[in-house]
Nucleic acid binder design. Structure first.
Lengths: 216, 216
DNA sequence: TCCAAATAAGAACAAGTGTTTGACAAAAGC
DNA sequence: GCTTTTGTCAAACACTTGTTCTTATTTGGA
């Protein structure tokens, strides 16, 4: 972004002003400016110019500019200060209800169901909760109604109990192999192993914990 | 807004979900969700419903909702909860290692092995944790190494899973009766029921939750 | 059981906003 | 001086999204 010691060209000045104004605006308002807001703020009279610079800034990796989304600019490289003062001891995790393929995990979930989990359990990993429905893992002592703590990851090892997406449906199974072929094994004699083919199946994460609040 | 004191009405649930989802979304993405995003997140199918709730939330002073502006919701009063995990939401419970008869339960506890549990689980009751050792309750899907959340109480009902003191030793069993005589039943065919006589036995509390952090 | 109020849904509309296209002027290169 | 490149602008277009209106559905109480 910086040039030599000589003066910045006109375009550099503009792109700089755009960048700075976006940062300033977000800091002031919490939300992003629109392209037209930036016009005013950066002294440009055409939305198209601003648009061009925003795309450039995105390419440079300074911002994240989602195509088509209004007021959705994200300033990057803020890691240093942006860190939430998340209390060290405890983390609030959302509970995923339904998961749709293709969408990021958190996309559609019903957020209402969530609770705190000890930080020591999940460390710095990204995790979510999954409420068990059914008894397909009963032999692993995972019961209907249990909440599973799932550490997000897209791969796993043999023997891991994983949360997986099978044809848009989220389930919990044990990952393993039979004759070298990967399967998702239920832990219940009433159910059959499911061949793991990368087309219909996707690993969401590994189960690292379990909370049960219905004891019978 | 409130109906009876015990249960939230449907509307409260929805407005709550909207509010929570907005908070969650902004935390995740930096920018606000659109009305249609909130629809998905809060499980509502009409933008108009969401719009109504957003206006209400604005009136309540919980958010700032600018008419006509896209993705420009501001969460207010973040100071309160953004800090520590609202102490009200979470409670630190001690894990009891050894318990000695006659001593109050908390007497010897070693706070080193303690962790946070959601307030919603235990309410205003006095609780403690008990780490399971052994497999005597395996048929109830309680495994070696599990942490049990025990609500302190000195009596219990038939069928309850309880923490009890038998000759100075703390164990977990299911309380029940056989031919009218009270017993403590292990949930494992390898063990025998223990007659419950008030001289050697004492109920410490009822198991109301379970945390497992060793998944195999 | 029935009616009224509260919720939610669905559709249609209107406005804000991102994106594209083309044009023009200034600057840079030859 | 002429061409090319760069920066800017203006306008038009298309999509996202906020808003409103109407109609169904549910809820709660008489």
């Amino acid at each position: 972004m910086s040039t030599n010691s000589h003066e910045a060209s006109k375009s550099e000045k503009s792109i700089d002003r755009v960048y700075n104004y976006v940062k300033y605006y977000i800091k002031e308002n919490t939300f992003s400016p629109s392209v037209r807001d930036i016009c005013k703020g950066a002294g440009l009279k055409s939305t198209s110019s601003v648009h061009t610079y925003l795309k450039k800034l995105d390419e440079m990796g300074l911002i994240e500019y989602r195509p088509g989304m209004r007021r959705a600019i994200i300033i990057k490289n803020q890691d240093d200060e942006a860190q939430d003062p998340t209390p060290a001891d405890v983390v609030k995790l959302p509970c995923i209800g339904k998961i749709t393929a293709g969408q990021p995990i958190y996309a559609h979930e019903d957020y209402s169901d969530s609770f705190y989990v000890n930080r020591s359990i999940i460390g710095s990993n990204e995790c979510f909760l999954l409420k068990v429905s059914g008894t397909s893992m009963i032999n692993a002592h995972i019961m209907d109604g249990d909440y599973l703590i799932v550490r997000k990851q897209s791969s796993c090892q043999e023997g891991d109990i994983v949360a997986a997406l099978i044809n848009d449906e989220a389930t919990v199974k044990r990952f393993g192999k039979m004759n070298g072929v990967p399967y998702l094994f239920p832990e219940n004699d009433m159910y059959s192993p499911i061949p793991f083919n990368t087309e219909d199946c996707r690993i969401l994460g590994k189960v690292i914990g379990l909370h049960r609040y219905s004891i019978y």
